[in-house]
């Protein structure tokens, strides 16, 4: 959430109402928020700090939240912006960026006309365990990791993601597409290094 938007007051809750709205509308999402923060930071302490910052900020700006609207997307937007604006700079572990990946993917992100395919079998992916999936996800640059988490783990729609990330829906689509291409490459590398047969007879039944 931009500071400008955060201070756009649309409600005037009493103190009692503020606490009620906070408890009823925001607290149910704290597990999702914590998992999102952990996936962004890759560190439990950092995730704690990020979630705490987000919830305190949500309370501070609660008058810009209309009860009954999409609290989850509102909170995710605050968390994402807190991560970018305040947290990314001081993170203990700067994201493990493969700069070649970033260069390749960003250069073509908004022009996803050329679709490469990654020769990877669905049953190979099914054989991977959770840690291997997490490693592949964590190896992605944070902006790509973010769209996959929002879409696949948290189930946000493209429209919600566009609002959370403050980007057009078309960019959500193309970024997601690129993110998934990269993820498939990472999954394929992990599977290969673990001795899985990743692409033999991939077109055969």
């Amino acid at each position: 959430m931009d500071e400008q938007e955060e201070i756009k007051i649309t409600q005037t809750y009493t103190e009692v109402e503020k606490h009620r709205v906070f408890e009823k509308e925001f607290m149910p999402y704290i597990d999702s928020m914590y998992n999102f923060a952990f996936r962004l930071t890759n560190d439990e302490d950092d995730a704690n700090d990020l979630v705490q910052d987000t919830y305190l900020k949500a309370f501070r700006f609660i008058n810009s939240f209309a009860e009954g609207t999409n609290a989850k997307a509102w909170l995710f937007r605050i968390l994402k912006n807190s991560f970018i604006n305040d947290f990314r700079k001081k993170s203990k572990e700067p994201s493990k960026v493969d700069y070649q990946d970033v260069e390749t993917t960003y250069n073509s992100e908004e022009d996803a006309e050329t679709t490469q395919t990654v020769d990877l079998r669905a049953d190979t992916v099914q054989d991977l365990i959770g840690d291997e999936i997490a490693n592949a996800l964590n190896a992605l640059p944070v902006d790509f990791r973010t769209v996959i988490i929002l879409c696949d783990v948290e189930g946000f729609t493209y429209e919600e993601m566009a609002k959370i990330l403050d980007i057009p829906i078309g960019t959500v689509r193309s970024r997601l597409h690129r993110a998934r291409m990269l993820l498939k490459e990472k999954l394929k590398s992990y599977a290969k290094s673990l001795g899985y047969d990743v692409n033999a007879d991939s077109m055969a039944e």
Binding site: F22, I30, N35, V51, R121, A134, V153, K184
Partner: peptide, 30 residues
């Protein structure tokens, strides 16, 4: 493949529970 990857992300990624100490800390500060 795309369907499988999406389902895998939903089902196999570890879902952490937020520490109760964090919830307590937030409520105290609020």
């Amino acid at each position: 493949l795309e369907k499988c990857i999406k389902e895998t992300m939903q089902l196999k990624l570890e879902k952490k529970c937020v520490p109760s100490s964090l919830i307590d800390c937030i409520k105290k500060k609020i």
